[in-house]
């Protein structure tokens, strides 16, 4: 396997300093978080960054915190493994912990970061659909100040985000959620966590009363469009209706229509579209059947197929 070429590494002690380095050095540099995308791109795709800005020496850029208003802050350098095993996330959003557990091996998840994964904007990123259904926001900083975008506006295309070269994603913020919110993430991938998603489907659902009227529903899809996407037409099928299996099926059909998959080495566009229909229905039924709370891995895995 190819080795990295000699490069310059900067280890700034603040976000402002990191941003100033990129401003000064100009194009051709890369930020480094866990390195599980960057080092592979260097080795496999011939990426040759002129310089690398390692963000791991910046204080206060990792960790998960519940704020007084009930919102949840996941700082950018928090690892996938930390999200997967966080008692707070497992309790409030077990499907988000599940989606983090779907990213590569434990060795990879001990390095891969949520911020790095979002900033690389891979359409198949497993945590992206879960964060989209939670209407997460991206906190972006530079030497010039801070701004906040919805994660939906943050993604622009494969590898493309709303960030300027000198901007740094510092945190993902999940706004306060309904106490009865339940959710699900299904990664469809024959090799499970060791391969990218062929299709990813996340659901966040609030059902009211015995009749199961849908107070709100969010559906998001991964790996079937240039960016992770909300399936709003599918949501509209269920919103404010009494939840039934028939409606879940109809929502699946809508999701299959509104996604924009491509054919690649993993599967054809037609197959992905068909699987979006099936997986969306299944994810909706799974979400509706569970109560909020942690669910063991094995049980979740069995529910997938």
């Amino acid at each position: 396997m190819k080795r990295p070429e000699p490069l310059e590494i900067f280890q700034p002690a603040s976000v402002e300093e990191a941003s100033a380095i990129v401003k000064e050095k100009g194009p051709g540099g890369r930020f480094l978080a866990g390195g599980t995308d960057l080092i592979i791109a260097i080795k496999e795709k011939g990426l040759a960054p002129k310089y690398v800005v390692d963000l791991k020496r910046v204080p206060n850029l990792s960790g998960i915190r519940e704020e007084a208003d009930g919102s949840l802050t996941i700082r950018a350098l928090t690892t996938m493994r930390e999200v997967e095993i966080s008692p707070l996330i497992r309790k409030r959003f077990p499907f988000l912990a599940q989606s983090a557990a779907e990213v590569g091996s434990i060795q990879i998840r001990n390095r891969a970061t949520v911020g790095g994964n979002m900033a690389n904007a891979t359409p198949s990123a497993d945590v992206a659909p879960s964060l989209l259904v939670l209407e997460a926001r991206a906190k972006i900083a530079s030497a010039g100040g801070e701004r906040v975008l919805s994660l939906e506006e943050f993604f622009h295309g494969p590898g493309q985000t709303a960030m300027l070269p000198e901007e740094i994603l510092t945190a993902i913020v999940i706004p306060p959620t309904h106490p009865k919110l339940v959710g699900e993430y299904i990664k469809f991938s024959p090799r499970e966590m060791m391969d990218l998603a062929y299709v990813g489907v996340a659901i966040a659902l609030v059902l009211n009363g015995k009749e199961k009227r849908c107070e709100s529903v969010r559906i998001a899809l991964g790996a079937v469009s240039p960016t992770p996407m909300r399936a709003r037409k599918a949501e509209a099928v269920i919103e404010k209706q009494i939840f039934t299996e028939e409606l879940a099926e109809k929502a699946g059909e809508e999701a299959a229509k509104e996604c924009k998959p491509i054919s690649d080495v993993r599967s054809s566009a037609e197959y992905r579209r068909a699987m979006v229909g099936t997986m969306t229905k299944r994810a909706l039924l799974n979400a509706a059947a569970q109560r909020p709370g942690p669910v063991p891995w094995v049980e979740r895995r069995e529910r997938r197929y």
Partner: peptide, 10 residues
């Protein structure tokens, strides 16, 4: 961790 994906500079 995978030592093949980590730079000495880190």
């Amino acid at each position: 961790v995978n030592s093949c994906l980590i730079l000495s500079g880190e």
